[in-house]
């Protein structure tokens, strides 16, 4: 894994892509898309994060174990968020005494 030197062009291209995506986020935020505003904002932010992880953090040249750790880190976040949100969303679904 060591010794792979990425050309400067790729880093500059990645920077350009991130600038374009930032402009898209701001542009889309001025439109009223209802619930979709947040979805689009998070999708664009997710794209930006993926580009940073893949190119700037050089995960594309990392060992399989490192890649697995990166995916694992994101997966654990998803597990935490799903468990939290399913709890908050479903709290009022069951009729019954408000004991606690």
């Amino acid at each position: 894994m060591s010794g792979h030197v990425t050309s400067k062009k790729i880093y500059f291209a990645v920077f350009g892509a991130l600038m374009i995506l930032t402009a898209i986020t701001v542009g889309v935020a001025t439109l009223d898309l209802g619930q979709l505003n947040t979805v689009v904002a998070l999708a664009v932010a997710g794209c930006k994060a993926t580009v940073v992880i893949w190119y700037f953090m050089e995960v594309r040249h990392a060992r399989p174990l490192t890649k697995l750790t990166v995916v694992g880190g994101i997966l654990w976040l998803v597990i935490m968020l799903i468990l939290l949100f399913t709890d908050y969303i479903s709290r009022d679904w069951m009729a019954g005494p408000q004991a606690w």
Binding site: V26, A45, V52
Partner: peptide, 13 residues
Amino acid sequence: IFLFPLLYLLGLH
């Protein structure tokens, strides 16, 4: 990258 849209751009439209 996540903080900027969620905090700043939330009510822009």
